[in-house]
C-alpha cells in the first residue's frame, strides 16, 4: 500500500504502470516539431462533426479508445475512466464518458487536469480500488476561445503574454501490472493566488503555484532538481517559465537546465504565431502521451517530474475583478 510522504506528497509501494498511451492533435499542433510522436493529426478542427464542442468530445473519446486498443483492451476491461477538460461543466469529458460506458469520475483542474488524473489513477490503482484506469484530458482552441475570449473571426490583437489553447487530447492506461513507465510518487498542489488579475497572462498567475508545488515536492521527498532527468511543466509558457525560475532562485533552488515546458515544446515558437506558448488541458496531455511516453519507453529518459499547472478562474470571476487562483500537481514517472 502506498503512503503519504511529508506535507503533500504520496509514494506508491507498487508503482502503477502506464501500459499504453494515445495522443490526437489539431492542425496547428500537427505543424509543430513533435508531430511524428502523435497518433493522429486532424486537419479539420471540426473533426467531421457539426460543432467544435462535438469535435473536442470526439477527440477525447477517440484518444481513450485508441489507448485501450493499442494493448488489445476493450472499454469494459477498464475499471474506471478519469477525464476532464476546460469547458463549462466539463462537457467534453462527460459526453465522451457517455460513449465509452466506463464507470466515470469527471475532473476539473483546468490545465492541470491531466496530472491530477494521473495522480488519482495511481492512488486508486495502488490502493487496490481499480486494476485498470483509463485517463484522458482534452482542449480545443476554438471551443476555449469562444468561452474565454472573443469570437474567432473577431479582428483583435492578442497580447504577447497571451497563450494559445492547444487543440489536443491525450490518454493513458494505468494498470497495477504490466510493461511500461511507472508512476513512482506525486505531490498534490495547493491553490495559490498571488493577485494576478490579467486573464491574458496565465503564466504569471500559475508560476507561483508551480514553485510552491515543486519546492514542497523536493522537501517532502528529499529530492532536488538533479534527481530528475527533466522537470516538465504543463503550460507555463515563456513568461511563466521565466517567473518560475526567478521564484525558485529566490528560495535558493536552481533548476539549472532541467526545466521544459509542454506548451513551448508543442510548437515552433519562432515560426508559429502562438505568443507566449501553448496551453490547455490537452497540451500536457498530448505532449506527455505522445512524446514523453515514447521517450520513457525507449529509456531515453530514466525519470522525469511532470508538473501541470492550472488557472482556476472563470471569465465571470475575472470580470468581477477577482484575481486568478492557480494550482499545480506533480508526478514522477520512471522508465
Amino acid at each position: 500500500m502506498g503512503e503519504k510522504v511529508g506535507q503533500q506528497s504520496v509514494s506508491f509501494s507498487q508503482p502503477p504502470v502506464i501500459t499504453s498511451s494515445a495522443a490526437i492533435v489539431g492542425p496547428e499542433e500537427g505543424a509543430g516539431p513533435l508531430a511524428q510522436y502523435f497518433d493522429w493529426v486532424i486537419d479539420d478542427p471540426l473533426f467531421g462533426e457539426k460543432s467544435w464542442e462535438k469535435a473536442e468530445c470526439k477527440m477525447l473519446e477517440e484518444s481513450g479508445k485508441l489507448a485501450l486498443k493499442k494493448i488489445n483492451l476493450q472499454t469494459q476491461d477498464a475499471d474506471l475512466f478519469l477525464a476532464g477538460d476546460l469547458l463549462n461543466q466539463i462537457v467534453s469529458a462527460n459526453y465522451s464518458a457517455r460513449g465509452l460506458e466506463i464507470p466515470f469520475f469527471g475532473l476539473f483542474g483546468a490545465c492541470s487536469t491531466f496530472v491530477e488524473a494521473m495522480l488519482l489513477a495511481s492512488m486508486l490503482v495502488d490502493g487496490g480500488f481499480a486494476r485498470c484506469v483509463l485517463l484522458a484530458s482534452s482542449s480545443h482552441h476554438l471551443t476555449a476561445e469562444r468561452q474565454f475570449r472573443f469570437p474567432v473571426e473577431q479582428g483583435v490583437q492578442r497580447p504577447a503574454t497571451g497563450q494559445w489553447t492547444a487543440t489536443a487530447s491525450g490518454a493513458l492506461v494505468v494498470e497495477a501490472q504490466g510493461d511500461g513507465p511507472r508512476i513512482v510518487c506525486g505531490t498534490i498542489g495547493k491553490v495559490v493566488d498571488m493577485g494576478i488579475t490579467d486573464m491574458n497572462n496565465m503564466g504569471a498567475a500559475m508560476a507561483p503555484a508551480a514553485a510552491d508545488t515543486l519546492l514542497t515536492h523536493f522537501e517532502d521527498t528529499g529530492t532536488n532538481p538533479d534527481s530528475y532527468d527533466l522537470i516538465v511543466t504543463g503550460d507555463l509558457g515563456k513568461v511563466g517559465q521565466k517567473l518560475l525560475i526567478e521564484l525558485l532562485k529566490k528560495r535558493g533552488c536552481d533548476p539549472g537546465d532541467k526545466l521544459r515546458d509542454c506548451g513551448l515544446m508543442f510548437y515552433d515558437t519562432e515560426k508559429q504565431d502562438i505568443h507566449a506558448g501553448g496551453s490547455g488541458c490537452g497540451c500536457s496531455a498530448a505532449v506527455f502521451s505522445g512524446y514523453f511516453y515514447s521517450e520513457l519507453k525507449e529509456q531515453r529518459y530514466k525519470n522525469i517530474l511532470l508538473m501541470a499547472t492550472g488557472a482556476l478562474m472563470s471569465p465571470i470571476t475575472c470580470q468581477q475583478g477577482e484575481s486568478i487562483p492557480a494550482i499545480a500537481h506533480a508526478v514522477v514517472v520512471s522508465s
Binding site: A160, M194, A204, L243, E246
Partner: peptide
C-alpha cells in the same frame, strides 16, 4: 507586500509592446 513584490517581478519579465510599431 508579497503580492506587490510579485507584481513588480511580473512587470519586469513581461514582454513589452512595441508602441511605435503598433
Amino acid at each position: 507586500s508579497q503580492r506587490e513584490e510579485y507584481r513588480l517581478l511580473v512587470e519586469s519579465v513581461k514582454p513589452q509592446h512595441n508602441v511605435l510599431k503598433n
